[in-house]
Structure formats: C-alpha cells, structure tokens
Design a protein around this nucleic acid. Structure first.
Lengths: 145, 145
DNA sequence: CTAAGAGTTCAAGTGCACTTGAAGTCAAGG
DNA sequence: CCTTGACTTCAAGTGCACTTGAACTCTTAG
C-alpha cells in the first residue's frame, strides 16, 4: 500500500487549500514528486512541514523567512524529531523577542497612551527607530524587529 | 501664531508619510480641515491619533478595526487623556489575548513540533478551529482571534 | 517674471499570500 | 461512450496598506 499522499489528501489533513499547497511548492517551501499520470505525490512528512509553515506564519513570519528556516531541514532523508527540534530552536528566540516586545508595549500602554506623553518625540512606545517607516509598501506584519 | 500643522509637519513629527496620512484620512481614521489655499490643516491632537494608529497596527489590527476604535473618540472636541484611556482600555483585552495566544504557542512549540505529534489531527498547537482557513485571501496578520 | 517648494487630486502600481477561473488530462464507474 | 471527480497549468483577480506618478495650484524668494 502506498503511504504517499495526493494533494487533496494533504489539503484535507492539513486544512490548507490545494491552491496554497501548490503555491508553497512554487515558493520552494514544500516538495513533491509526480506519479505516472503527472499528479503530485507527497511524503507523509510534508504534513509536519505544512504544520510548521502555518505555525510560523501565525508567529508573523513571511513565507520567505519561513523558507529560510525549512531550508535547514534535510533534503535527502525524511526529517526526524531532532531535525525539527533544531529548526524550532533556531527561531524560538525570535518568538520570544516578539512576545517580549508585545508585553513591553502593553505595559506602557496605560502609562503612555492613557496619559499625555504619546507625542512620538519622547515616547518609548512608538519611536525606537520608527521601524515601520523603514519597510517597503504593503501590509506590515507584527514582527519587525 | 497658528498652532495647526500642515501635512508635511505631521509627516515629519509622526514619521508617517504624507501619502499614508492622506490614505488614513480617506479611510476616516484622521480628520483635517482646509486653509484658504485648500491645504490640509491638522490639530495637534492628530499626532496622538496617528501614534495610536501605528501602535494598534503593531498589535496586528487592521485599519478597519482601528477605525472602529478611534471612532469612539469625541469628534466635537479635542480628546483628552481620559478619552484615550477609555479607547485603550477597550482593546487592551484583545492585546492580552494575543500575547497569551503567542505564549501558549511558544510553550507547546518544543513539546510539540520537537516531538512527533504535529500531525494536525490531534495537536492542539495548530488546529483549534483552523482559524486561518476561515479568512479570505491576502496576507494574514498575527491577530486572528 | 520665474523657479522652487509645498501642497492638491486621481489613477495606477507594489508586495504579500493566496484564490479563482479557464482549459485541459486522466482513471474509474455506469 | 460518457460523465464524474480529482488532478494539471497558467493567467488573472483579491484584499490590505500603502506608494508612485502625472498633472495641477499656490506661495514665497530671488
């Protein structure tokens, strides 16, 4: 019995649309090979990979950034728990920093927006570098530093 | 001496491009009136308003959501500290929920992606509702629940 | 008088992360 | 043989948050 998955099966099991899966493949985030009739076949390990992608997206990473992370996974063999742990460890600090940043922002919220100091020149909440202004057009994600 | 600001002055003081300010105005997030030559004039209070918008954006709110928040501010008079405190209080729970969600995700990261349970069917990290799939197209922000 | 610099409007373009639609292939079932 | 369903590619569309460009006005300085 073949243990490989069709794109429809991956979509169903992962909750990610087939169009998104093709898009991820196009972007090099996941890989597949083709069966005799030209249909994509996925290893079961793609499920964990897709899970990781969605997870990282929820953390605010772009697909480009995520690609940088999953590229660290082995290509020649099915990644094991250790591989995943390594990749996860690589970006956990990023996640930590993100949470800390949000907490700092929240902590200053009452004491800052609530009062009158939110004049951006002196207030620490907004302007540590005015990072948002540095980025290009398009919607900005929560993570940016 | 007039205490009102031109769009250029607001841009400089807030770090937000003039094009973005016009865009915000178009979306009803900020307001201005015109001087004799048709140029926008802003009250100084617009600076705090813009600050709030950027702040809320960094929390992951869309401009539409932010509009809902700033609409609570008084239109007939310059908002005072109490007005801002009220608006801030209104969405602080949202921010808290966001931070908590991230923390839950982080806490499960090692014990979940690191091991082998990330199969999406049973893992609590990803699928509590599969919220992302509910949304329309376009990039997804970090906040979504 | 002319040029610079700041402002104006409106339409179109950008980047991300997809989705949707059109047109086609392929295998299985009635 | 025909339909159904799952798949294929490729181009174009979508939503957000803007930016950019073209064509224009208005004020001030030289």
């Amino acid at each position: 019995m073949d243990t490989e998955l069709s794109i429809g099966a991956v979509a169903e099991r992962s909750g990610v649309a087939t169009s998104a899966l093709r898009f991820y493949e196009d972007r090099g985030l996941i890989h597949s090979h083709r069966n005799s009739s030209g249909h994509r076949r996925y290893r079961r390990s793609v499920l964990r990979r897709v899970a990781f992608i969605r997870f990282a997206q929820q953390m605010g990473l772009t697909l480009t950034e995520i690609r940088g992370l999953v590229d660290e996974l082995p290509d020649n063999r099915v990644p094991d728990a250790e591989d995943w742990a390594r990749v996860s460890a690589a970006w956990t600090p990023l996640l930590d920093a993100h949470i800390e940043r949000l907490q700092r922002l929240r902590d200053r919220l009452t004491s800052c927006i609530g009062c009158g100091c939110l004049s951006m020149q002196h207030c620490g909440v907004l302007n540590p570098g005015d990072e948002l202004a540095q980025h290009g057009p398009g919607p900005r994600l929560v993570i940016d530093g």
